[in-house]
């Protein structure tokens, strides 16, 4: 276990949950499942984050952090990830099942089938996209991973960082206590859709200008 990565993650867990909560909480509310099921969904979400982290561990090790900081590719790549993710969120929020506009929903059968086939897609994608936020703790972890001597060490560093940041997610599934309130499902889905619009904006801005947001 990389203790330094774990401690770094633990000390910055509040910042991480703050970044993820606007996406995770509306989604959990929108699903309207119980606490146990929410733990499963949160697990999928965290798996997406872990996947994103490990991907960056590989990048940190293979490419020096300095090069990746300078490259013009970083923001467009994350921007594209944000746009794809925002598409999923907007579809989930406004067109999936609780379709406000039948026409729009009927035109989106592919997405509907995709989500029906793989319900974990959205939480995993959400975890992945929110995991890509270049917050100060993430950059610290990135630098720490870049300093590791092997790929395995870099991945272990990010893994322990992930574990540290994930501890605070223990409370998130408790929104399942409100599952009896069906109205909250509608509200949660709409909020997720609105968050999708924000990520769409973030993605476009990252691609065209690399402006720092959120």
């Amino acid at each position: 276990m990389k203790l330094d990565g774990f401690i770094l993650g633990l000390s910055n867990g509040v910042a991480c949950i703050a970044t993820c909560a606007p996406v995770l909480i509306p989604y959990l509310l929108g699903e309207g499942k119980g606490i146990v099921r929410n733990y499963w969904v949160t697990g999928q979400f965290l798996f997406g984050r872990l996947f994103g982290y490990l991907l960056f561990a590989v990048l940190a090790w293979t490419v020096s952090s300095a090069i990746l900081q300078e490259t013009g590719l970083r923001n467009p790549i994350i921007g594209i990830a944000y746009i794809l993710f925002s598409g999923l969120l907007i579809f989930y929020g406004f067109f999936n099942k609780t379709n406000v506009s039948c026409k729009a929903a009927c035109n989106s059968n592919k997405y509907k089938r995709l989500l029906a086939l793989w319900p974990a897609l959205l939480p995993v994608a959400a975890g992945f996209a929110t995991g890509l936020s270049f917050c100060p703790p993430f950059l610290l972890a990135f630098t720490g991973a870049a300093e590791q001597t092997s790929l395995l060490a870099a991945m272990l560093f990010f893994f322990s960082f992930f574990l540290g940041t994930s501890l605070l997610f223990v409370l998130a599934p408790f929104v399942g206590m409100f599952k009896r309130f069906q109205v909250l499902q509608i509200v949660g889905k709409m909020a997720a859709g609105l968050m999708g619009l924000y990520y769409l904006y973030s993605g476009v801005i990252l691609i065209i200008g690399g402006l720092k947001i959120i």
Binding site: P22, V183, V187, G188, A191, I214
Partner: peptide, 23 residues
């Protein structure tokens, strides 16, 4: 007007409360 839209203010409220706490 589809009554579902009357829930939108609550979604906006949830969004802005969370986003403001984050930012």
């Amino acid at each position: 007007v589809n009554p579902r839209w009357t829930y939108l203010p609550y979604a906006v409220l949830l969004l802005i409360v969370l986003a403001s706490a984050v930012t």
